[in-house]
Amino acid sequence: MGQALRQDEVVRVRGLAKTYPAVKGRRGAPGTPEVRATDALELTVRRGEIFGLLGPNGAGKSTLVRQLTGLLRPDRGSVEILGHDIVRHPERAARLLAYLGQESTALDELTVSLAAETTGRLRGLDAARARAERDAVLEELGLTPIAGRPLKKLSGGQRRLATFAAVLVGERPLLVLDEPTTGMDPVARRAVWSAVDRRRAEHGTTVLLVTHNVIEAETVLDRVAVLDRGRVIACDTPAGLKEQVAGEVRVELVWRERAPLDVPEVAVLRERAVEAGRRWTLRLAPEEARAAVATVTGGAAFAALDDFTLATPSLEDVYLALGGAARQGLVKA
């Protein structure tokens, strides 16, 4: 069974650790303490899946991705991609995966068409092949009408889509995408995910996705690893993770001006609420939630209530329930 699984593994990370040294404070600038960006991190990504890395800023997602792509040497631990040791041979990563980073500075002054073609050439395609793949990818993503425009003249979402196009020219069995859909409109997002799905169906392409976006994570990911302070604190399917907090309901209350703390039941609820301005967020057992809703929708409290919602738990609730360090949770929307 173990051997059978090994053959199916695309990414295998074991005991990965990277510590950024402390920076001494200089005149006018305070120093920063030593930071453990990844800490004995373990991860396995299997062939053909869309695997997500979810976590707040500073959880170690980018450091992990830089270690996987051969851009950063870990202090300890191993990274294997499709059977190749990336710690010992970081230069092999470029021949196994395509990487979409957060920056597009290298391509900004090129036209969409030339950015895709040049990237294909540098990925080892000959001129004719690079041009053919460029045309196919631009058509597939609906970028043909703006092929002649420089990236820096495009909107943020279009520019992101153009850099994604460059990633797809020159096929790779693994795509590492760092927040690919940031700033995109729904049409562009759909173009990205259908392009990914097509490659998955036709070539068994594996995708490692870094995301902040809880809603996107729930809809596109096969499995997700929740990162916190450089460690994987949970790894499962989105549905499987949500089962861990299945017994809870999220209640959100928005008050008109301020909470009516003179109502005793409301004062009790406050102890369990996470407050953000006029908004209270509570995670309660179903019967408690019913009682809370009954309280705020009747009597004196109702006059002070602006809005309320009841929801089943999201990945964000999972993250908070697991003890994620950032109490404010993840970015939604």
């Binding site: 090994r6 053959q7 199916d8 299997r46 062939r47 053909g48 899946e49 499709l82 059977g83 190749h84 092999r92 470029a94 021949r95 196994l96 050439r121 540098l122 990925r123 080892g124 020159g170 790779r172 069995p173 998955r200 169906a201 070539h203 068994g204 096969d222 399917t237």
Partner: peptide, 20 residues
């Protein structure tokens, strides 16, 4: 739950050619 087109016996994947 997953689509695995070819879970072949090859453990070490072939490297794509580098650009010259």
């Amino acid at each position: 739950a997953r689509s695995v087109p070819e879970a072949g016996p090859v453990v070490v994947a072939e490297l794509a050619p580098a650009a010259r």
